[in-house]
Design a protein around this nucleic acid. Structure first.
Length: 573
RNA sequence: CGGGGUGUAGCUCAGCCUGGUAGAGUACUGCGUUCGGGACGCAGGUGUCGGAGGUUCAAAUCCUCUCACCCCGACCA
């Protein structure tokens, strides 16, 4: 491709809306342009990248035995009403009314549609298993779209669905997909980690997320450095302290702590370590008011807490509710003492329950208690449970080593769905004995457009994007310096360009009549992995100049060896 | 949905407080010089100041409403 015939739209300055590096660079390099909130056009340059990602995903899915198909993105409401998700999926779904006032939705995911295909077409165990997938535009009306295509409303997704006669076969395919995903992200040149995950709204039992590791990632991942354990922090279990609760050693004391409402401040004021303080979080669940007790250095995991009996639909209590149940304004609240008439439900985190001689709110504005002990000063908690987020240094729940925390961008997610959809939609088959059974399902997603952003989060420097070779829009850039005025330079460059084209290399030939600085800056910004410079200076010395995008400096190679040199560089990447 | 903020040239932004001819840089067009790290000179085009209403002799500026977008919390590929 010649730049004069292409559509390069690079920007010196990034539009103010972009915050994340990948978003800024995608705009600056002219990969995408914003059309509306969470809606992006992929310009020709970005589209090349997107298609390369897509084709790697497609190749590996096909290799794994999955079959590509294409389902409508607009889906009749009835199908979603069958599974109850028309209501359950909520406002994230874009609902559409047609001219006959019939309800449709723009598919945010396609379990219903694919299950409908399966129930119509599959009647016998002899037709199983089958794995159907598509690569298609999805729409989710995100509460807050942000970070460009990282969390867009419209996005490109590979979604696959497998159907099995029994759970054992599903598990076989699940492992197959685990390996396939590992292969895909490896081929894409990304640093990633597979982690155990919550199944969220899509439902099911076993589930893993694939995260591209990046500090800007929206998810926190807990992993053990000494074992294979890795889990989304939402899910990672915080195990009970091995040592148990130490006996009380000091008498209860009430101290004036005016203006001290945060555990950090309390610890500083009382000269206590933060982990000897206790925070009480007032929450409302399905059974009403409840106090959640955590060590001052720990944070609440709402997902875990919400799974406790009586805590469904967990939310923080309002100030009014707190006063009503504790008779105290927030900032100084704690469990009512053992002697009090007032009783509230107290759920303590495992490590909070193991604390002795700790400090907590006195339920009196401006006062805290110190050297408090469960059972002596406060009633024993009604329930001891894991309700906190794990922190760096916690024991790994698999018993091997300690946990470390890193951040990741979720680019893939695999689920064992089971029979949730097949039962709701009566997708059944006849087994060998002629018995009707629901098909056992799995589902497997990859965020194709998000991968482009994730790759840039991992690959960039102060000059711009550093694409992995496999997904770069072009593999090689040829820059003829002063080519417009120097026929010899142009001729040599064209010859190399034609030769590379003939060997099937994606090469971008910068034939613009631009100053060298502009060409260098543009090619670096858009992240072309290999660069070949032809100049008058070089021709006189009989050399061309090669530089890899990640290289610190360039090398001069004899012109007649330039092609070979490039091919070696391409092969080794 | 709640809390905060911004809308002025394609992009980055000034002007608004204190009302009075709509600006800079960059980008763009033409000509010339320049030509290995986002050049320079000259000339040129560029705006319903997000929209509607109001106050005023006069509104980008003040007031009201509205829309869009961005940022902070609950969702997810």
């Amino acid at each position: 491709m010649r730049t004069s015939k292409f559509f390069l739209s690079t920007l010196k300055e990034a539009p103010a809306e972009a915050e994340l590096v990948s978003h800024r660079l995608m705009l600056r390099a002219g990969l995408i342009r914003r059309l509306g909130s969470g809606l992006y056009s992929w310009l020709p340059l970005g589209h090349r990248v997107l298609r390369k990602v897509e084709s790697i995903v497609r190749e590996e899915m096909n290799r794994a035995g999955a079959l590509e198909m294409l389902m409508p993105s607009v889906v009749p409401a009835e199908l979603w009403q069958e599974t109850g998700r028309w209501e359950a999926f909520g406002p994230q779904m874009l609902k559409i009314i047609d001219r006959h006032e019939r309800a449709f939705l723009y598919g945010p995911t396609h379990e219903e549609v694919v299950t409908d295909v399966a129930r119509r077409e599959i009647k016998s165990y002899r037709q199983l298993p089958v794995h159907l997938y598509q690569i298609q535009t999805k729409f989710r009306d995100e509460i807050r779209p942000r970070f460009g295509v990282m969390r867009a409303r419209e996005f490109l997704m590979k979604d696959g669905y497998s159907f099995h006669a029994d759970h054992a076969d599903l598990e076989r395919e699940y492992r197959n997909m685990y390996e396939t995903y590992t292969r895909i992200f490896t081929r894409l040149g990304l640093q990633f980690r597979a982690v155990a995950a919550d199944t969220g709204a899509i439902g099911g039992t076993g589930s893993h997320e694939f995260h591209v590791l990046a500090d800007s990632g929206e998810d926190a991942i807990a992993y053990s450095q000494d074992s294979g354990f890795a889990a989304n922090i939402e899910l990672a279990e915080a195990v009970a302290p091995a040592s148990g609760r130490a006996p009380a050693s000091r008498p209860l004391d009430k101290v004036a702590t005016p203006g001290t409402t945060r555990c950090e401040d309390l610890a500083a004021l009382l000269k206590l370590p933060l982990e000897k303080t206790m925070k009480a979080i007032a929450a409302m669940g399905s059974d009403g008011f409840c106090l959640l007790m955590l060590r001052g250095d720990h944070s609440l995991n709402e997902l875990k807490a919400g799974k406790i009996d009586g805590m469904a639909g967990l939310r923080f209590a309002t100030d009014a509710e707190i006063e009503q149940h504790l008779g105290c304004r927030p900032g100084y609240i704690g469990p009512p003492p053992i002697s009090a008439d007032r009783k509230v439900r107290v759920v303590a985190d495992r490590s909070a329950a193991a604390l002795s001689d700790f400090a907590c709110g006195a339920n009196e504005e401006g006062f805290h208690l110190k050297d408090v002990n469960w059972g002596r000063d406060l009633p024993e908690p009604d329930l001891v449970a894991d309700i906190r987020n794990v922190v760096d240094g916690d024991a790994s729940p698999d018993g091997t080593g300690k946990l470390a925390i890193c951040r990741g961008i979720e680019v893939g997610h695999i689920f064992q769905l089971g029979t949730k959809y097949s039962e709701a939609m009566k997708a059944v088959y006849l087994d060998e004995s002629g018995t009707s059974r629901p098909m056992v399902m799995g589902c497997y997603g990859i965020g194709v457009s998000r991968i482009v952003a994730a790759a840039i989060e991992q690959g960039h420097d102060d000059k711009g994007i550093v694409f992995p070779a496999q997904i770069a829009p072009f593999s090689v850039a040829i820059l003829p310096i002063g080519g417009a005025k120097n026929p010899a330079v142009m001729e040599t460059a064209v010859k190399l360009y034609d030769a590379l084209l003939a060997s099937g290399v994606d090469v971008l030939f910068d034939d613009r009549d631009e100053r060298p600085g502009v060409m260098f800056a543009d090619m670096e910004l858009i992240g072309i992995p290999h660069r070949l410079v032809i100049s008058d200076r070089g021709l006189k010395a009989g050399t061309a100049e090669y530089k890899g995008r990640r290289d610190a400096s360039s090398v001069n190679v004899p012109i007649d060896e330039a092609l070979e040199h490039l091919k070696r560089a391409l092969a080794s990447a």
